[in-house]
Amino acid sequence: MFDLGALQAAVAAEGRVARVVIAAHDGSSPREVGAAMLVWRGGQSGTIGGGALEWEAVQRARAALDGQDRLDKVPLGPALGQCCGGAVLLLTEVWDSARLAGVTGDAVVRPMPGTAGEMPLKVANRLRRARNGEAPLVTEQVQGWMIEPLARPGREVWIWGAGHVGRALVAVLAPLPGLRLTWVDIAPERFPDTVPEGVTVLPAPAPESLVVYAPQGAEHLIVTFSHALDLELCHRLLGHGFARAGVIGSATKWARFRSRLAGLGHSAAQIARIDCPIGDTGLGKHPQAIAIGVAVAMIRAGQRKETWGTGRGNDRDAAG
């Protein structure tokens, strides 16, 4: 999908940015159709994969910053000596603020370099079916036109706590596609000086008071410095509603929480919706290990509607 927010941020910082996207491929490819990267004179973000494929694409993209959009069909084996065996069609477009102003609606639909004439009927039918709710748009190249739906973060993730584990979670989860992160703690100084792009930071002396502002379909990771705050957040989230929730903890901590939450009026079935521990505790208690386990579990949860935990404790005293 077309990540308009990332492109807008890059253009605001760099002025002119080349966007390289895999428009199509024959045979195997390092990445899927729609995989994209942004390239500017002094840097890049994102990846189309492939090592040599990406290196050459970056060089062409930087050259295009002084010229025009381009379309390149790259046979991976003969041209680059890669073992994939397929051929990749790369679309490189130069974006600036004026071009961005023309992006409207829910998709970016345009002719690729070398294509002239009016929009093909096949493309118009794709758009009509999407407007009528008959079929969603997908990223594809159709008769020389490129169709890319705008990326919409599908999952709201709230991370409660900016200590060691909270920081590791944000660092690991922020680059993943389809997530919008909201990060909460008690004061601005609890957060690092540099926060990943797109993460919303919410300092609040009473973090539990922010629960009412979370979407009811959000997912929550509770990793604060305080067991009392963890419990209060669990209590309020159970009354507010959520898609998934997990709290860092040991078996002993969670047994106490279950008892106290029951005393606050929550049923066993409601309490069981909160996952404790989070991630894969077989990886250990190091903050990054916890974050990696959580990220894997979250990806699987999104794909298969699984829970986040493994059934063993991962509590860290004052881990945050």
Rank of each mutant, 00 (worst) to 15 (best):
E232L: 14
L233I: 15
L233V: 14
H235P: 00
R236H: 13
R236I: 05
L237G: 04
L238V: 01
L238K: 01
G239K: 09
G239Q: 09
R244Y: 00
A245E: 01
I248S: 05
I248F: 00
S250E: 06
T252D: 03
K253Q: 03
K253P: 00
R256M: 06
R258H: 09
S259K: 14
A262H: 13
A262Y: 03
A262V: 01
L264K: 15
L264S: 14
G265A: 03
H266C: 06
H266D: 03
A268P: 15
A269K: 14
I271S: 07
I271G: 06
A272V: 09
R273N: 03
I274K: 10
I274D: 04
P277C: 10
P277Q: 08
G279L: 01
G279T: 10
T281N: 14
G282R: 15
G282E: 12
L283W: 07
G284T: 06
K285I: 08
H286K: 11
P287N: 00
Q288G: 10
A289L: 11
I290M: 02
I292C: 09
G293T: 04
A295V: 12
A297I: 05
I299M: 14
I299K: 14
R300G: 13
A301Q: 12
R304P: 10
K305M: 03
E306P: 00
E306N: 08
E306Y: 03
T307F: 00
T307K: 11
T307M: 04
T310M: 13
T310K: 15
R312T: 14
R312D: 09
D315K: 12
